[in-house]
Amino acid sequence: MANQDASLAKPARQKGLPIKARRAIAYVVLTIVVVMCLFWFYVLVINTTRNTGELAAGFTPFPSTHFIDNWKSLLADSLPMVKGMFNSLLVATLTAVLSTYFSTMTAYAIHAYDFKLKKFIFTFILMIMMIPSQVTALGFFRLVLKMNLEDSYIPLIVPSIAAPVTFYYMKQYMESNLPLSLVEAARIDGSGEFRTFNSIVLPLMKPAIAVQMIFTFVGSWNNYFIPALIIHDTKKMTLPILLARLRSADWLKFDMGKVYAMILFSIAPVVVVYLLLSRFIVGGVAAGSVKG
């Protein structure tokens, strides 16, 4: 009763929790969320420094001294992890470059020019945006077999030229950041259309290109379903396929320290790049989307 009286006595404005209490709750919850996100990676890093015996003895929150040993056994393993990283880097980089370049070009075609099929093509691209690659995987796989492109990187890289999602982002960005008067000015100065695109439009699109390059790179780096269907040669495998191989190996014989090292090795590049560019990624994405 006393509590009720007290709350009734308060002015209406102070109903609910006071701001300081709300802030405190927010910080507590956020801290729990942060721990929930990072705990797994903490265990991963700790366990990468421990050998099989220590790992079998149970978890301790402190690192041990076997990081180098685990790294050496990773290098000596029959799964070519370093080669796999090189392969992943090659595929993801080429995918990111081709995908963003040609998506910008496609967006520019729709944004800057006026032609009969424009509306139709734009609507069409929006409609196919959501179709996942899994549902066409069968036809894609058979096409790859027919073209004799099994164990080749072409089917992993070239299809990214037609990336509706990247296209859509570029198109949105152009609407608010690419004044057509600039293009007109370039024309008056006698610049050819292709040159205008490369030397005027691309530089103006840099922020959007950077964001999309990162996401396309990460998407390709992490991609598992399609590459696993196409790449069978161990030397050509990308990291996700190698990890799947690792998973299907005989677990009883395994050096667990090495397994943790392999997992850390596969995710470290993306994590490092992300932490270096995180402000830019999260902030840039939010800014781009608000302007969108």
Binding site: M105, T106, A109, I131, V158, P159, F167
Partner: peptide
């Protein structure tokens, strides 16, 4: 005209690697 030219890469790649597979 250049609108069409700039669309060629997307359309060709889409037709070969997405539409035909579908």
């Amino acid at each position: 005209r250049w609108g069409y030219y700039f669309l060629i890469p997307f359309i060709v790649v889409y037709l070969i690697f997405s539409f035909i597979p579908l």
